[in-house]
Design a protein around this nucleic acid. Structure first.
Lengths: 232, 232
DNA sequence: CGACGCATTGACAGGGCTCAATTTAAGTGG
DNA sequence: CCACTTAAATTGAGCCCTGTCAATGCGTCG
């Protein structure tokens, strides 16, 4: 049972450049294109063939997948200093996911040809990205299993904890998810409806595990939430 | 809407070695260890720190994840000529999944150190594996979305089609899934119960979309199944 | 041929989705 | 600063899908 107050990330900028000497870093980053985006802008969407790899310099991205009937599933949030890819590196197949900004965002992006050259030139880049990809696979597999086997309340618990670990900030009241996260968002992330999420959060507020307001959640008792979510 | 009779794979041996000159292939493959396994053997399991990367030379692997309460979710099947990884390449974190053989299996495996050296020496290897990893992410995200948004019957349809594309074989009656696939397996793959799967398959048998026996399924009308699964 | 394991079918119940009606909170402009 | 608008959140009622459990049937393999 991991300590829920320890935050962990996936691939940060430094991990992306691991194994490469310092004075090459500016070269690699310099070959990318700097892009500024304002609130609610789509960085790339399903089937977009343009630029491929992004590092978030400032702000946060929401990665989601749209279903035919308008429903969506949130894949994950990409935080500042993390990396995400728009498309398969080699194949001409779109990476079928949409990235939307949460607040103001600044990124560096490399197109396919540039990134491919960079990876051939600096093998560690490909290796580091492979590691990041494997982490994502791990994350998805875990969530897939949860979705298959657990009841909604438990899944909401795990989801909230996962988001907390990735994007939480300590405050005097507990750990605050410091960006707009609506009941609907949490439902899309967990695979349920906003009504069910609302009911569950209401209960947890009564038992004192969380404090919540409009699009704001603070986990006041992470340990209680962890033991509930892991024991079921 | 893709043609369901076209089979597609993820990373085959030749894709793994793409971008590397022919006479290097034997060197790369030769640095791995050849392993024979008989039926039902576990190749690696959650937390196993030993060898990392495998190519299946013969037979088929079942990749699954176990849940605390004994339930399991099947991640995917690894066919002959395909590749799978036991662990993150760089980090000392286990790739938390268990691989079990389906029938007689032969693989080539590389341990962490060897594979890491190979990837530094031959950048295309890392790039190719990155592509494979991205395909898996894509697959998992798609299934995650389906699990979030679709009803069971539709999901069973998609799952069956997915397995068919990966492991189907044309026969005179239709497309046969040519390995033992029980109702329980399909349920674990789809995230439901064997009872529900059984009921659904019975219905489809009545409408003439499939023919099924004990651990054997033949899709007799793939197009009908596709339009059902995609329209919902 | 017998036994074990897989599959089928039925009955039942409940978790969670749907939909509708309110309430609350945030933002906006005068 | 307050009234007004708009979007998020809450809550309740009803019901359906699908999981659970039990009994039975059937195919396969030793």
């Amino acid at each position: 049972m991991s300590d829920p107050t320890q935050f962990s990330d996936t691939l940060s900028r430094s991990e992306f450049l691991a194994g490469i000497s310092k004075h090459e870093h500016t070269n690699i980053l310099g070959r990318g294109k700097r892009i500024k985006l304002n609130k609610g802008k789509i960085l790339f969407r399903e089937g977009d063939p343009a630029i491929r790899i992004y590092i978030v310099l400032k702000g946060r991205l929401k990665l989601y997948k749209l279903h035919e009937q308008g429903k969506e599933a949130i894949i994950r949030y990409i935080n500042c200093d993390e990396l995400t890819a728009a498309i398969a590196v080699f194949k001409n197949k779109a990476y079928p996911v949409t990235a939307e900004t949460v607040g103001e965002v600044e990124v560096i992006g490399w197109d396919k040809a540039t990134m491919h050259k960079l990876m051939l030139e600096y093998a560690p880049i490909a290796i580091n990205m492979l590691n990041a990809a494997i982490s994502r696979i791990d994350d998805l597999q875990t969530r897939y299993l949860e979705l298959c086997t657990e009841q909604v309340e438990q899944r909401v618990g795990r989801s909230l904890l996962r988001i907390m670990k990735q994007s939480g900030r300590k405050t005097k009241d507990g750990i605050l998810i410091d960006f707009k996260l609506s009941r609907q968002d949490l439902a899309d992330y967990t695979g349920t409806t906003l009504f069910t999420v609302s009911r569950i959060l209401s209960n947890w507020e009564k038992t004192g595990w969380i404090k919540s307001g409009r699009e704001r959640i603070t986990i006041t008792d992470p340990h209680a939430l962890v033991s509930f979510s892991e024991l079921g």
